[in-house]
Design a protein around this nucleic acid. Sequence first.
RNA 1: GGCCUGAUGGCGGAGCGGUUACGCAGCGGAUUGCAAAUCCGUGUAGGCCGGUUCGACUCCGGCUCAGGCCUCCA
Length: 463
Amino acid sequence: MKLRLSDTLKRQKVDFVPKNPQRVTMYVCGPTVYNYAHIGNARPVVVFDVLFRLLRHLYGEEAVIYARNITDVDDKINQKAMAEGVDIDVITSKFADIYTADMRALNALEPTIQPRVTQNMNAIVAQIAALIRNGHAYEAEGHVLFDVESYKAYGALSNRSLDDMIAGARVEVAPYKKSPQDFVLWKPSKPGEPKWPSPWGEGRPGWHIECSAMIEANLGLPIDIHGGGHDLIFPHHENEIAQGVCAQHGHSHQEESYARYWMHNGFLTMDAEKMSKSLGNVLLVHDLIKEFPGEVIRLALLSAHYRAPLDWNNDLLVQTRKRLDGLYEALRKAADVPVVETAVPEAVIEALCDDLSTPRVLAELSALASALEKASEADKPLAKSQLLVAGALVGILQQEAESWFKGGADDDLSAKVEALLEARKTARAEKNWAEADRIRNELTALNVEVMDGPAGATWKLKA
RNA sequence: GGCCUGAUGGCGGAGCGGUUACGCAGCGGAUUGCAAAUCCGUGUAGGCCGGUUCGACUCCGGCUCAGGCCUCCA
């Protein structure tokens, strides 16, 4: 099956051909760890997790190396550490741990490696030195700046010319810059801020160099896939390309010598408004997972195509939960059916290979669930297994159906419910409908929905 | 000003030049002590104006509207 991906740089859907199928590399820009991750931050995590799973499926688990960085050097981290009077790694390790836990709750696999800026200072300094050596960067007043004029293809990813950028520049231009668009590779730290040694004095790296240096040091150039949010195209990824290409001595300035495929996910809105702290509509993953199962949040993030904008609202969550209920219902009825070894259905692979069309995967999952419902006893094991392996490829449907439906219930509640159901069973056997209904009302009050079936009654927590 | 998306039924959201997306809600039926749940079935669409075509939601051109980026940002 041929994988096709939308490449931001080439501006079209192209066949994905890894440089080395034995070693497929992917890098996604990760979090700056000074705060809780919001739901918008979670979209690339979930989207590229699906891609990670697909690549592992296509090329083998051992063949795929997925790196997601942790930015632990940053102004906002410094501010927070300063305000709380602690060392920056008190802040960064706390929020890195929270981030890891929150993303795990969304069924995201851990990336193969998670490089940190603080542990890659040598690589960063080395890449800056290479840029100076190759004539693409210069030192000025304790700063090292990238010389944008020296790289002809600058602007290729975001499709803008240097003139446009000058015209649209809204930042104050530092006097020591040769050209207004030149960006910082290294800067001196202010008194009291964390600093690292370098040939240009003690200081810290600029934001963009961190990623390109960590990519070169941890994955090697070129990597196959570079991903991130739509907003990173400019300036972050544009600058990464400039750095990554120009740092390679003697290279012919081909953008693809840094990353071969560029992928960007669309943005999330909150009730049709941009999510931003100033509007106060930021929804934290940390809070959301207390209200909805991680699986619901994950599937909601996958309900639209990854490049399309996605409006996040309560209705989306409710609909997604019901959809998941439907899939789990099919599995619940087939709880006693044995699982057999089977390949992922071709239609599911096909949908994913077509630029990660998760909406189509959802349609296929519905079809598989329906097929399971209708299957003869003899066909049920295969039908059930296909639904499960298809779900696994997008990271859902991996828990027991019963625990899905009773997910929010603790042991006390479960015991109480079971006892009430037993009493109701007796009442019903005696045709004491008044008593049976009274018990059912009592269960309803506990937010429990009773479902009578041929094999007796079962229950679930209402959404 | 420059660059980039998107516009599909009540809602979410796909594919496709002529034929069912899928899901949620609705409606009908089966089932049930009554319900609920479940299962089966089912109606509703393609921003506007032109063009190409035997035929366009699907291709081409224009327009309108909405959102994003150009500044830290997934």
